[in-house]
Write a protein that binds this DNA or RNA. Structure first.
Ligand SMILES: [Mn+2]
Ligand SMILES: [Mn+2]
Ligand SMILES: [Zn+2]
Ligand SMILES: [Zn+2]
Lengths: 154, 154
DNA sequence: CAACGCGTTGCAACGACTCGCAATAGCCAT
DNA sequence: ATGGCTATTGCGAGTCGTTGCAACGCGTTG
């Protein structure tokens, strides 16, 4: 629509990380299928946390023939490509984040059931402590810490 | 067997935390059942981590009629009483610890699959950081942090 | 445009857990 | 010892996620 783009020779199209997926797949001998297209359309409109079940439900809205195992496998693939990240909620259920948000962990209050994102500076303390003491490189995105929030003490 | 105990009026029998379970249950209007007895016998001989499935299997060895849902419910109860604690492994599966070990979290290396316990001083850094910055009271026992160990970098 | 190879899909079966419900059985009071 | 109250059990059904396998179809080649 914007006519000013028409003339540009090497217009940088403000790429979203999703734009070159088809190529990235092909480059690895993988394929660009309708099922993967559907999932990515769904992921594009997500923000914050989504459970795998919610993603499957959204895919079903767009394509009634959606199969759970296919979505789970596609999510695994996208995670390998670094486009999504999953962790496990307090009950062990999967929760996904769409990148490229800041990588972060989660805090869950067993008192009120609220979930918060761990702020970067707090996350850094955890990452640094384990790096310094054990040489362990933490993947914060897969972390959910439970306990009681300030409002739910005692 | 030891005859020297026979005469003692108020011998303190080096109580294990399991010894007074029947009373603790009764005190709360709860019941002492064969299924709970079986589970506790199994728990007594555990050390380190056990998955719920492993516990169910062990209970079945002692009592072939063991039912999974009953074991899950008994574990919930024992956790409320503070006698066991569970967390979720990297795949979200439940892992139990028998108390009164030091409460601790876990580290999982996605490279080699090894799991370590987080040492008290390292755990303290995490607990203190979240307490200081957010007033959040961490339950370290329910934490599993994944990442890459020193031997599995790059 | 037709043929081929292999990456993917759909399905069915399974494992880990949860929940509602009716039958069972601890525990206490006569 | 008997009876009753109600906590607990066992079961069936359901959810979430994984995996093996045969059929399918994307993408390439001629
Ligand atoms: Mn995981
Ligand atoms: Mn441990
Ligand atoms: Zn709270
Ligand atoms: Zn490792």
């Amino acid at each position: 629509m914007p006519p000013e783009q028409k003339a540009g020779a090497t217009v940088r199209p403000a790429v979203s990380p999703w734009d070159d997926i088809a190529e990235r797949l092909h480059a690895n001998g993988l394929r660009w299928t309708p099922q993967r297209r559907t999932l990515i359309e769904v992921l594009k409109e997500q923000q914050g946390h989504v459970t795998a079940s919610e993603l499957i439900a959204s895919c079903k809205e767009r394509d009634r023939t959606t199969t759970p195992s296919t979505v789970y496998r596609a999510l695994d693939l996208l995670e390998e490509l670094g486009l999504v990240r999953h962790g496990h909620g307090h009950d062990g259920r999967e929760e996904y984040h769409v990148l490229p948000d800041q990588v972060h962990g989660h805090l869950y209050c067993v008192g009120c059931g609220t979930t918060w994102e761990i702020r970067p500076e707090t996350g850094a303390v955890i990452v640094d402590a384990l790096a310094a003491q054990l040489g362990f490189d933490v993947d914060l995105s897969h972390v959910t810490i439970s306990g009681r929030c300030a409002g739910c003490h005692d």
